Simulated scan of single mutants.
Amino acid sequence: MFTKLLKEVARGKRGARDLTYEEALEAADWIMNRKATPAQMGAFFIAERIKMESVEELEAFVNVSRDAAYRAPIQEGLDCAGPYDGRTKTFFASFATAFLLASAGLPVTLHGAKSLPPKWGVTLLDILAELGIGKEQLKRDRVVPTAAATGVLFVDTEEWCPPLKELRDIREELGMRTVLNTAEKLIDFSHSPYLVFGVYHNTVFDRMSKLLTDLQYRRALIIQGAEGSEDLFIERPTRTYIVENGEARLHVIDPETYGLETTLPEHVEWTAAEQIETVEAVLQGKAHVGYVNQVLLNAAVRLRLADRADSVEEAIYQCKDLLDSGAAWERYTQWRSSLLSEETPAPIGGVK
């Protein structure tokens, strides 16, 4: 049966057709449950890459991935969906931003896995490893209480969705982007009503808008960010799409509008150690103003997205106060200590 589905998407540039949603569900089931052979799975991924996945095909893989994952309404907040192939040339602003948002009362879910193709960049797991946070500290019985106490949940995706771990060898051998690169970012482990989602090319805005509408997020922001991430640029405007009430509209976010546009220091390639050093410097107010402003802008736009502020301008002032007062740094240090401690974390104020 899988061979029949494979033939439909692999008939060449002119003969290939998109699968129906029901067909795509079946194909996703064959792949996620490893009922197809490695050769068949590799052929399917390549054929889809050439044809380009339809919205129905993407949605099917998202839903099958969700069915295979541990998901629970752990906290009602914001899901940050960045690329699982990591970063090489840009600052991981989302990580620092998470603690600023949590200190403002907006729970945040972060998720990731070991680096993947095509970029093979530094990932959140690499950054956490620099803090001494590994698989033992990232088990559910630690991260869920930590999220309840601090408002920041980190999910090791391949542990919460085992089929993705089992498919890693095939993805690494192929060395290219597959439909899973999108699906894994949309598993929505904590049932978040709000989403920020990074893309690399603006040509996918329309497809992703339709997909996020079908997945019924209350409000989502698709961002053509640095290295395909969900982080807004600080040195220039960023193209975004706001998806809400079944509609999507283009919204260009210009840091100059808010007096935040800054030239960042020249940095050729980032290591995990440099990422965490800069994150901690930002949260302590000791970093280059460009990185501080980038975190302020991303946090303010996300607070507005989640209706936690009446305007981006208001949110910027709120976030500045939280940085200056040390509240964001305190949230980060408690989160870090909670994961590294054997004791059950105690809740602190501000998490809703």
Rank of each mutant, 00 (worst) to 15 (best):
E256C: 09
E184G: 08
N245S: 13
M176F: 13
R249I: 13
L186R: 00
G198H: 04
E261R: 15
E244G: 03
R239K: 13
F189E: 00
T203E: 09
R177V: 09
D214C: 07
Y194F: 15
L186F: 02
N181Y: 04
T257K: 11
E256L: 15
A248E: 06
A248F: 03
E227C: 10
T262F: 07
L212I: 03
R219S: 08
E256R: 15
T178W: 02
K185I: 05
E244S: 09
I242W: 05
L215R: 04
A226N: 05
R207E: 12
Y241Q: 04
R239M: 11
D206P: 04
T263V: 14
H201I: 07
V179H: 02
E230F: 03
Y241F: 10
H251Y: 09
V204K: 05
F189G: 01
I242D: 02
P255Y: 06
S209I: 06
Q224V: 04
Q216L: 09
Q216E: 15
T182I: 08
T178R: 01
K185S: 03
Q224Y: 07
I253P: 04
S229Y: 07
L260V: 11
V179N: 02
K210V: 10
E261M: 15
M176S: 13
L212S: 00
H191Y: 14
R218V: 10
R249A: 15
M176Y: 13
L221R: 06
T238H: 07
Y217F: 15
E227P: 04
Y241A: 02
V252E: 13
I222C: 03
V204Q: 02
L180T: 04
L250N: 04
R218N: 08
D206R: 13
L221H: 01
Y258P: 02
R239S: 07
L180C: 07
I242L: 14
E256D: 14
Q224M: 12
T240K: 00
T240F: 01
T203D: 10
T240P: 00
G246Y: 07
E230M: 12
E230G: 02
Y217S: 11
E256T: 11
E227L: 12
L250V: 10
I187D: 00
R236M: 14
Y217V: 11
M176E: 14
H191M: 08
L221M: 15
I223G: 01
L212Q: 01
M208K: 05
E230T: 09
Y200G: 05
T262G: 09
V199D: 00
I223W: 06
E230N: 14
H251P: 01
T263Q: 13
L232W: 01
D206W: 09
L215D: 03
L260I: 12
